[in-house]
Amino acid sequence: MRLFLLLLITLTGLTTACQDTKSTLQNEPLKIKQKKKAATPLKPKYTKRITNKNVVEMLTAYGENNKERFVKLTTDFGEIEIELYNQTPLHRANFIQLVKRKFLDETCFYRVAKGFVIQGGNSDRMEMAKIKRKIGQFTIPQEIKKNLKHHYGSVAMARVYKNNPNKRSSPFEFYIDVDPKGSHHLDGEHTVIGHVIKGMEVAKQINLVEVDFSEWPKKDVYMKATIIK
């Protein structure tokens, strides 16, 4: 009996599907056949990967067409708003790129150094790795300015110290200074790219989360990044 019902349901479904298709075709207007034109392929928004050879050219061009300077990071603890500096144009353009390409949405604050910094721009998500590969493999020429120092609330880019005499920045990993006295031992060593204009209380809450031996939070603190203006 169950086999008979199963066959009946299957046949009914096939009949219904065929009837729906026929009905749809009958209601379509008659189309005049025309010679097909060759389709113009749509250009993807991002086609060229950034490398150390073209990084200045690529980020300069991107910055000229994307002049936004204010970014909001939304976390489970609240929102952090950041103003990026025009004095560091390559870094500003790169950070805006990370927001618009949804890279930061796949990352978390993966390092929490108590009383010092919260560092974001990395995670173990596969989607993050995919977006990173599409953006490219490169570092950013340093844009260290004497007047841009590591004050409380400053935002700066991480970098590798070994074999990096020119202090080129990581394009993906950034940190926020949560030391009330500032972290001035880093002045001249890292490019400061902006500062927090709202939400330092959120940054301080994140700095209090429980971490493991590597300063990685035991519960991931993910973020969503959006352009304010």
Rank of each mutant, 00 (worst) to 15 (best):
L3T: 11
L5W: 10
L5G: 01
L8D: 03
L8T: 11
I9M: 09
T10V: 14
G13C: 13
A17I: 14
L25S: 08
Q26K: 15
N27Q: 13
N27V: 09
E28Y: 11
E28V: 14
P29H: 11
P29W: 06
I32E: 12
K33H: 10
K35F: 11
K37M: 09
A38H: 11
T40M: 11
K45W: 12
Y46M: 11
T47Y: 14
K48E: 15
I50G: 04
T51Y: 07
N52T: 07
V56G: 01
G63S: 02
E64F: 08
N65K: 15
N65Q: 12
N65L: 09
F70E: 11
V71M: 05
T75G: 01
D76R: 09
F77M: 02
I80G: 01
E81H: 10
I82Q: 05
I82W: 07
E83C: 00
E83D: 07
N86T: 10
P89F: 00
N94G: 03
F95S: 03
F95L: 08
I96D: 07
Q97T: 11
Q97W: 13
V99K: 07
K100E: 10
K102H: 12
K102E: 12
F103T: 05
T107F: 04
T107L: 02
C108L: 12
C108R: 13
F109E: 02
R111C: 01
I118A: 01
G120H: 06
G120D: 01
S123Y: 05
D124C: 06
M126R: 13
E127L: 12
M128F: 05
A129M: 10
I131V: 13
K134R: 12
F138T: 05
I140A: 05
E143W: 07
E143R: 06
K145A: 03
K146N: 15
K146M: 09
N147F: 09
K149Y: 02
K149W: 05
H150D: 07
H150Y: 07
H151S: 11
M157P: 00
M157Q: 04
A158L: 03
Y161S: 10
N164W: 05
S170F: 03
E173F: 04
F174W: 09
I176E: 00
V178C: 00
D179Q: 08
S183W: 04
D187Q: 04
D187E: 01
T191F: 03
T191N: 06
V192T: 08
V192I: 15
V192M: 02
G194R: 02
H195K: 14
H195C: 08
V196E: 03
K198W: 06
G199R: 06
G199Q: 04
L208F: 08
E210A: 11
D212Y: 08
D212C: 04
V221Y: 06
Y222S: 12
T226P: 00
K229W: 09
